[in-house]
């Protein structure tokens, strides 16, 4: 086993309209078992994946939004949301699910997983990755 690589899952699609966001979440959860440095980015319509209050009871689809709250338990604690994408869609961080993780290095304090960053910051974070997968 070589050095740990930085994996980033870049999510740019809205949920339900296509399969990609569900697959992106699944692969992030499966990939967590490989002990790599994993983060996720939510850009463009991808920010809608994190919208609070998703209710699929009348559409008959699988509501997978609840699974995002499991990410913290899988050590996926860096969820970067692009500020410009939120703004362009009339959303604020208050519209998003309050996702958290327990920080093992800080007495298991509960901390927010969602980090709102502007496009320049996100460009720098993307440039630091090793492996980029797109959903």
């Amino acid at each position: 086993m070589g050095a740990i690589k930085k994996f980033m899952y870049i999510n740019r699609t809205a949920p339900y309209g296509s399969i990609y966001s569900l697959e992106g979440l699944e692969v992030a959860l499966i990939g967590a078992a490989f002990d790599q440095d994993v983060s996720m980015a939510f850009v463009d319509d991808g920010v809608f994946q994190l919208k609070k209050g998703q209710d699929t009871s009348k559409s008959g689809m699988k509501n997978f939004s609840l699974a995002y709250s499991a990410l913290g338990d899988y050590d996926i604690t860096k969820l970067y949301v692009e500020k410009e994408s939120l703004q362009a869609r009339g959303l604020t961080v208050e519209d998003l699910m309050p996702l958290t993780y327990e920080d093992q290095d800080d007495d298991y304090q509960e901390k927010p997983s969602i980090r709102v960053v502007d496009s320049e910051q996100l460009a720098d974070i993307i440039a630091e990755q090793d492996v980029l997968l797109n959903y």
Partner: peptide
């Protein structure tokens, strides 16, 4: 095979190319 093979490809390869 499983999705794990995708992660392994990312680990083993110098470059991962996504076409979609």
């Amino acid at each position: 095979s499983g999705l794990g093979q995708l992660i392994e490809t990312g680990i083993e390869a110098d470059r991962l190319m996504v076409f979609g």
